[in-house]
Write a protein that binds this DNA or RNA. Structure first.
Lengths: 396, 396
DNA sequence: CCATTTATTTCAAAATAAGAAATAAATAAA
DNA sequence: TTTATTTATTTCTTATTTTGAAATAAATGG
C-alpha cells in the first residue's frame, strides 16, 4: 500500500503546493485559496520567510482596491539552484535555474552516449555552471533530467529509450554518484508539460494537455493541477493512436499510428522519398508555401491526423487547453492551420467554445529549464526545506 | 479563486477519504496508508466510532499472520441512508441505500417528464421507501440523482438533456424543495464510474475508465482515486470521437462519431433499416449467433469502432482498467469479442500487459445505487458528520 | 481628516498530532 | 504448556499547530 495516498496534509505543504501552482500569492490569497486561517498563514509564511524560501515582493499594482494593499510573496530566487539537462541523442544545453525558474547559466552538452559518459558530462556541466555563475555548491539543491523514453520516475530509472538505446538505466543514481547532488529523472513530454505549467503558457491552468511536435509526437496531461502520469507512467502516448488500421506500419508494430503521419521523422522520410529537398519539416513548410503540391499533401495529411487524434483527446479528457509545443519548426504554416481546422470540425460544439488551442515554438533550452523545474518540485515536495522551529515536513 | 484547491487537510478528512476509497481498513492500515501516527489514528477512529459513522467489523480472517490480529473498521450501515434515483426517459427503480451501499429498499418510478413532476415523483418514492423500510426520516441524509446529459454538479443543474428534453433545470433545488432533504445530481456516466469504484469491479483501482454501453456510449474516468470531470464537466465524451470523417452524420452535427456505430440506438436503427427483426441489440447478437450476415456485420462494425476509440483512450490516459458496463444486453457475443480484439491490436505492447479489459452486465438498479453513493460521498466530503468534541470538519 | 475597507499581526485558548511506553492478542518455538 | 516474538492498539504526556477575536496597518473616498 502506498504511503500517503491523497496528498500532503499539513498546512505548510498546502502552502508550498500553492506556490508551486501559482507562483505569486499574498497571504490573503493563500488564506482564501487554502481555507487555512489568516493567523496560521501569517505564522507559516513567517517561517518560510525566515528560512529564506519565500520573499516579499514589492508590489507595483495598477489595480489597487479599497483597503490595505496585499503584499505578494513568492519563492526567493537565490534560495537555491537546480541544474536542468535534456538528455537526447543530440547536443543540447544544460542550464542552471534559480528557485523562480530563471535561467542563470547555460552550458552546451555533447550528445549523450553511454549512461556513464552522460553522468560524467553532467558533472562537467554542473561544475562549469557553478564556476560560471559563482553559485556556491551548497546552494545547488538538485539536478533534473528530461529523458526521451519510458521513465520510472520514482525509481529514477530509464526503462527504455529508443533514441538513446538505453534499457533499465538507473540514471538518477549514476548522476547522484557522479555529482554528489540529489538527482531526478522525468520523461521529456512530462517535462514540457511541467515547463508550460511553471513558466510557459499554462501557468494558471489546472487541466491541460501539452503535445510535443518533435521527431515523434509526445504528450502529457495536467489534471487537477497535477501532472498525471497514468497507471504505470504511460499516459500521453498519443503518438501511437491508430488513425488507419490499413495505414503504414509503425516501428511499434501497429499500423497507421499518428507518428507515421505527423511525427517529424516520418514526415521527413516521406518527403525525401517523394524526392523533396528537405532537412527538416521547416523545409517542407517552405516548399508548401511556394506551392509544391507534394509538400502540401504531406503537411495536410499530417495535420489531419494530428487534428483527429487531438480531437479525440479533447472529447475524452475535456482539457481547458491543448498546448502544442513546436520543437521541429513547423511555424505558422499549413500544418498548424490544418490541425486547427480538423480539431474544430471534430469536436462537439460545447468543447469548441471552452477549449483553447495554442501553438507555440519552444526554445532550445526549454526542456532543460523544465528539467530543472522537475528537480525543484521534487525537492520542495519531498520536503528538505530546512526547519525553522520544527515544522514537520511530511513525507510524500 | 476556488476554496481549498488541493484536497482535504485535516487528518479526519484524510481518514474519511480513505474509507470512501477502500471501504474497510484497520487502524494499522490507516496509519501506514495515510502516514498519520497510530496514536492519532486511535483518537480519530474513536471519535468516528462514538459518532456512529464507523463500526468495528468482526474479523473472520483466513490469512492471519503472526501478531495481534487487526480489527477492521468500516462505515456503520445504519448510520445513515440515501435515496438514489436514475432519471431517464424510461421507468426505473429508485432505491434506498445504507451507508455501506447496501440496497435496503426499492421502488418503481414512472418515467420522468417535467422537472416538477420528477421532483414530486421522487418525494413519493422517498416516502414509500421510508415507510417500507421503517427508516426514520431523520436518518435520511441525502438524495442522489443520476441524469443522462450535461450536468453542472456544483450548481445542481441539468444544463442539457436530450433524453429528457431538459435545459438548465435546477433539479437539485427542486428536489430539495419538494422533499426537504439535501439533494445532489450527477451525470449518469459518472454515476456508473462511482458505482464501479464503490461496489463494482473497480473497488481498489485508482485509475480506470468506465464505458457505458447503452443507447449512447458514455464514459467516465477515475484518476488518482478521484472522479475526473474535466475542465467544465465534459470529460468522457467518447461517444463523439470521430472514427471516419466521411461516416454517417450524427445528431451532434459531426460525421462518423462512435455513437453512430456502437451506440445501441444507432445499431438498432441500422438493423431495422436492413430489415432485421429486432427490438434490442440483444436480438442482433442472437441473429448473428445463428449466422445472419447482416447482423454479424453490424456488430463487427460496432465492435471495431468501439475498440479503436477505447484503444485511443488507453494510449492517451493509461488507465489500469477499462470497465465496460453493458446495460443494453450485448452479452458475451460478437460485439464484445470484436471490441477486445481491436483494442488488443491497436495499443502498444506495454499497455497490452498492464491494462485490464472487463465487460460486465449491470443490473437495473445499478445506476440508482450509484446515484445514492454520489449523495453519500457528497455528504461525507462536505462534512456534516456530527461533531464528537469539536473536530472541525473542513469545508471543501 | 475621518470613516471605510482590506490586509496582516498579536496573543491566548483550544485542538490536534507525535512519541514513548504500556497493554493486548495472536503465533511459533522451547 | 510456557515463553518469546510479533503485530495491533491504547494511554498519557508533551509539543506543535490552528483558530478566533481583537488590534494594528495601510490604503481609498468622501
Amino acid at each position: 500500500m502506498a504511503v500517503n495516498e491523497g496528498s500532503s496534509r499539513s498546512s505548510l505543504n498546502v502552502v508550498i503546493e500553492a506556490y508551486l501552482q501559482h507562483g505569486m500569492l499574498s497571504r490573503s490569497d493563500l488564506a482564501s485559496l487554502t481555507g487555512i486561517s489568516r493567523s496560521a498563514i501569517t505564522e507559516i509564511t513567517q517561517n518560510l520567510l525566515d528560512v529564506g524560501l519565500l520573499q516579499e515582493f514589492p508590489v507595483i499594482q495598477e489595480k489597487q482596491g479599497r483597503g490595505r494593499p496585499a503584499i505578494s510573496l513568492r519563492f526567493r530566487a537565490s534560495h537555491g539552484y537546480f541544474v536542468g539537462v535534456s538528455i537526447t541523442g543530440t547536443p543540447s544545453p544544460a542550464i542552471l535555474a534559480d528557485m523562480q525558474g530563471n535561467v542563470v547559466g547555460e552550458y552546451e552538452m555533447p550528445p549523450s552516449e553511454t549512461p556513464q559518459k552522460t553522468a560524467t558530462a553532467i558533472r562537467r556541466a554542473m561544475n562549469d555552471l557553478l564556476r560560471q555563475t559563482g553559485v556556491p555548491r551548497a546552494r545547488l539543491l538538485g539536478i533534473g533530467m528530461a529523458v526521451t523514453g519510458v521513465i520510472d520516475e520514482r525509481a529514477g530509472l530509464c526503462r527504455y529509450s529508443a533514441a538513446l538505446n538505453w534499457r533499465d538505466v538507473p540514471i538518477a543514481r549514476l548522476v547522484k554518484e557522479s555529482t554528489g547532488v540529489e538527482s531526478y529523472v522525468g520523461n521529456d513530454a512530462n517535462a514540457v508539460a511541467i515547463g508550460e505549467k511553471l513558466f510557459g503558457r499554462a501557468r494558471d491552468l489546472r487541466h491541460f494537455s501539452s503535445v510535443i511536435l518533435g521527431g515523434n509526437i509526445g504528450c502529457a496531461h495536467y489534471i487537477d493541477g497535477n501532472l498525471y502520469r497514468g497507471y504505470d507512467g504511460g499516459a500521453g502516448e498519443v503518438g501511437h493512436v491508430t488513425l488507419d488500421v490499413d495505414g503504414p506500419r509503425c516501428r511499434c508494430g501497429k499500423n497507421g499510428c499518428l507518428d507515421m503521419y505527423a511525427g517529424g521523422i516520418s514526415m521527413q522520410a516521406i518527403a525525401q522519398k517523394a524526392g523533396l529537398a528537405c532537412d527538416s519539416v521547416h523545409d517542407i513548410e517552405a516548399l508548401a508555401a511556394v506551392g509544391n503540391a507534394e509538400a502540401l499533401a504531406i503537411l495536410r495529411r499530417g495535420g489531419q491526423a494530428l487534428g483527429l487524434a487531438v480531437a479525440s483527446l479533447i472529447q475524452i479528457n475535456n482539457p481547458e487547453c491543448v498546448l502544442f509545443a513546436d520543437v521541429e519548426g513547423f511555424g505558422k504554416g499549413i500544418f498548424q492551420a490544418t490541425t486547427r481546422q480538423v480539431i474544430e470540425n471534430n469536436i462537439l460544439p460545447r468543447f469548441l467554445a471552452s477549449t483553447e488551442i495554442i501553438f507555440h515554438q519552444v526554445e532550445r533550452s526549454f526542456l532543460a529549464r523544465a528539467a530543472a523545474s522537475i528537480a525543484a518540485q521534487q525537492y520542495l515536495r519531498v520536503g528538505i526545506v530546512p526547519r525553522a522551529n520544527s515544522m514537520g515536513l511530511l513525507n510524500k
